[in-house]
């Protein structure tokens, strides 16, 4: 996942930080997801970096909160203009945002191919769909590992570890601070922890919003099983909107 709000999470495939169990569901052989953030040595610069990450996480959550309404609006718009079903022209409306147009084109492509083949549809869908599908599967796998197992949050400043928190899936926490930290350094780890958890929550929201939106958007598809077939397209759609917001935040911060 390229979004900066998630980029400090490391989801190892086969080995990682030692597992510490908080719950009966904990599998000690599963490597823990780890948030590693190394802040600048200068305190003001470190605070500014955390402000920016917190702002990105907050903006992502706002976008995800608004996603159901945006999808609902898109569905209503298409249904109002294309009473005979989804058509190519629906994606060519001049005032349609590019992400929405891209989503409609993907859905149109699914329906078009479904008309041509009676089985093996998934294998005949465009390469783009296959890529998005694999990305969604990988993200879902990371998400499950993230929420169902222990995660570590580590904060360093100028390469010096300040604190480490083990977070259980439901909020159990064990925090270790280095002895003799300055209060402002303790504050940096606490802030980093808040941003890490906001980012983890945003990842969960992205997943749940994708599943819900796919269910809604399937109303536009004539193909049976449309909700599942549209999952990759909706996943890509959500990521595109989040990327656009991140670009805007970065430009605004300059």
């Amino acid at each position: 996942m390229s979004l900066s709000v998630f980029r400090y999470w490391d989801f190892p495939e086969s080995s990682g930080a030692p597992a510490v169990s908080f719950a009966a569901s904990e599998d000690e052989t599963t490597p823990a997801a780890t948030w590693r953030l190394d802040l600048p040595p200068d305190h003001q610069a470190a605070t500014q970096a955390l402000d920016m990450y917190a702002s990105q996480a907050q903006a992502s959550l706002q976008v995800l909160d608004a996603l159901p309404e945006r999808v609902e609006s898109l569905v209503s718009r298409v249904q109002a203009t294309d009473t005979a079903g989804l058509s190519f022209s629906a994606a060519e409306e001049p005032d349609l945002p590019s992400e929405d147009a891209g989503l409609l084109l993907s859905l149109f492509e699914i329906d078009r191919l479904a008309e041509q083949v009676s089985f093996g549809l998934e294998e005949r869908l465009p390469q783009d769909w296959q890529v998005s599908y694999r990305q969604f599967q990988a993200a879902a796998s990371r998400l499950l590992r993230s929420i169902s197992h222990l995660a570590w949050v580590e904060t360093s400043q100028g390469g010096q570890l300040l604190g480490r928190t083990a977070v259980g899936w439901a909020g159990d926490m064990q925090t270790v601070y280095l002895h003799a930290l300055l209060p402002q350094q303790v504050g940096l780890h606490q802030r980093s922890l808040e941003v890490a958890l906001a980012s983890r929550y945003a990842l969960i929201r992205l997943f749940t919003a994708t599943v819900a939106a796919s269910s809604r958007i399937s109303l536009l598809l004539a193909t049976p099983g449309g909700a599942l077939l549209s999952l990759p397209a909706v996943w890509k759609y959500g990521n595109q909107i989040l990327s656009e917001i991140e670009r805007y935040k970065l430009v605004a911060a300059r």
């Binding site: 908080f22 719950a23 009966a24 569901s25 169902s148 360093s156 390469g159 010096q160 570890l161 899936w169 439901a170 909020g171 159990d172 926490m173 064990q174 925090t175 270790v176 601070y177 280095l178 002895h179 003799a180």
Partner: peptide, 22 residues
């Protein structure tokens, strides 16, 4: 659903440590 069912308690611990380097 199982996780939600099991989530009847939350524990928060705070520790400190003296370590050399990282």
């Amino acid at each position: 659903a199982q996780y939600v069912k099991d989530a009847s308690m939350m524990q928060v611990e705070t520790h400190y440590v003296e370590i050399v380097g990282n």
